[in-house]
Simulated assay, not measured.
Amino acid sequence: MRFELPTPFQRILSKEPYPLLFATISGAHLYGFPSADSDYDLRGVHILPLKEVIGLQTGSETREISTEQEGIELDLVTHDVKKFMGLLLKRNGYVLEQLYSPLMVATSPEHDALKEIATRCITRHHSHHYLGFAQTQWRLFTKESPARVKPLLYVFRVLLTGIHLMQTGEIEANLRHLNEKFQLTYIPDLIAQKTSGPERAVIKEGDQVFFEGEYRRLLQKLENASQSSILPDSPSAGADLHDLLVNIRLAAC
């Protein structure tokens, strides 16, 4: 699905010094609950030319840009293809979600090839990423007063993505789509609160006890899903990633 950035942000992206293997949308837009004032979180992979890889003066492995246009922020982060592949071989759910995001701003045949190979980077140990991320988001949710809807939605999005991944081996980061499977009755109301109001929308007073019970239930469900998952213990895509990287580098000469 082609995602159209606002024109000022398209101009910024067009000025990037390195070719992009891909660039996709992450954050609230990917998760299915953007507000009118949500930032654009753009993630991707750039390709360093061969001379900036093998020489003494090497290029940037990671490029970051944060800017604001008409009250809306753009947060752009790209990694060089080698660094990104290294992250794929670790238990890193972020890079998988970026790679498989359906909200594409830029793509390439190599993007398609990488997506095909990366299915063999997914392991049952990716559950640790989602368990840790959920616990971090829960702490953010509980330390604020009044408690906000946004971090709570992140908690449930992360837990359901992790459970779904352990059960199916598929990356799904959109909470609306996930809830078609999990049917949590409170999710549509939370999304409606978040999307119809400002980023700092808060939950109803007294609901925190209920949501804590749901958080702990789903956390346990993710742990159980990890233990029973038929996903492999380690990635098997290393050799194919190596070959793809070599071909990309040589083509960029």
Score class of each variant (00 low, 15 high):
Leu152Thr: 00
Met166Ala: 09
Ile203Cys: 01
Glu172Met: 11
Leu153Gly: 11
Leu159Tyr: 01
Glu205Gln: 14
Pro146Met: 04
Glu180Phe: 05
Leu152Glu: 01
Leu165Phe: 06
Leu165Val: 05
Asp189Pro: 02
Pro146Lys: 01
Ala173Glu: 14
Leu159Met: 15
Gln193Ala: 03
Gln137His: 13
His126Lys: 08
Phe133Lys: 15
Ile187Trp: 04
Phe141Leu: 09
Arg176Trp: 09
Pro198Gln: 03
Gly132Ile: 07
Arg124Gln: 13
Arg157Cys: 13
Gln193Cys: 08
His129Phe: 14
Ile203Val: 02
Val202Cys: 03
Val202Glu: 00
Ala173Asp: 14
Leu184Asn: 00
Trp138Ala: 11
Tyr154Gly: 08
Thr142Val: 11
Arg200Ile: 07
Pro151Met: 10
Gly197Tyr: 05
Pro146Gly: 05
Leu175Cys: 10
Phe156Ile: 05
Met166Asn: 00
Tyr154Cys: 11
Glu170Ala: 15
Glu205Ser: 10
Leu178Ser: 03
Arg176Ala: 13
His126Asp: 15
Lys150Asp: 00
Thr195Tyr: 08
Pro188Thr: 09
His177Ser: 09
Leu184Pro: 01
Glu170His: 11
Ile163Asp: 01
His164Tyr: 14
Lys181Tyr: 11
Asn174Cys: 13
Arg200Val: 01
Pro151Thr: 03
Ile191Phe: 09
Val149Phe: 02
Leu190Lys: 02
Trp138Phe: 12
Ala173Phe: 09
Ala201Leu: 00
Pro151Tyr: 06
Ser145Ile: 04
Ile163Asn: 04
Gln183Thr: 08
Ser127Trp: 01
Lys194Thr: 03
Glu170Asp: 11
Glu144Pro: 06
Ser196Leu: 08
His128Cys: 08
Thr136Arg: 15
Ser145Lys: 07
Ser145Arg: 09
Leu160Gly: 05
